[in-house]
Amino acid sequence: MIASLAPRAFSVFERNVFVYRRQWLIIVTGFFEPLFFLLGIGYGVGGVIGTIPYGGVEVPYAAFVAPALLASAAMNGAIFDSTFNIFYKLKYGKVYDAILSTPVGVGDLAVGELLWSNLRGVIYATAFLVVMLAFGLVQSPLALLAPLAVVFIGFSFGAAGFAITTHMRSWKDFDFLFIVLTPLFLFSATFYPVEIYPGALRWIVELSPLTRGTHLVRSLCFGDLNLFMLVDIAYLSAISFIGYRHAVRRLGVLLLK
């Protein structure tokens, strides 16, 4: 479908398929991280915690954490691709110069790369959903929509990561990326309900894109359709759009001198 709608962007996506056909094992390893978190925190610490209240009922802790891990898997899949890999291509490979000498333009380039980084997110999310099903952590058939919902997460983090990467000067700058990502992962209503945070702190946490993504996925997994999911989608879409626009503008500055 995308192939016929935006063939040029899709060809950039295809380039990554070529590259990763030989490196698929690397992609596979990325799947284990959320699994270890589920086993270690969800079941390990969850064994001590037991159940927690969610949406007015007591739910097993592992079932509460799992949707958040699914959402962060999508985030990680997208952001590592759109930062490390794109930085490498911008800085060292001359691939983009070659691509831009064909009918492909910077807009196609950005969309193609984002499609790819999103695919990684969707793959991790889908694989993790299968794990959740196997462990009986899925509370509603709506959970099957989760791999679709993570597309919003993937695009927002992919586009934001892409935009930030266009400003990076060296690998050292990536340490600053982790200064943002680690707290984002730990504090975004991932491991405990957002209500735990006192006062203003809570509203800061609510603004985290991962909190929104987690809320979206968690609502689906518990079959709890609510209007705030529309807020989540709008918020993540806005970040995607702004990130994409900025990335394209910066690509123009960097590559079309």
Binding site: S11, E14, F18, V19, V95, D97, A98, P103, V104
Partner: peptide, 20 residues
């Protein structure tokens, strides 16, 4: 500006795709 992540032939194949 060759694509160092691809093989010789793949460099040609993907370029064809860029040209649609």
């Amino acid at each position: 500006t060759l694509d160092m992540e691809l093989t010789v032939r793949e460099n040609l194949l993907i370029f064809g795709r860029f040209f649609g």
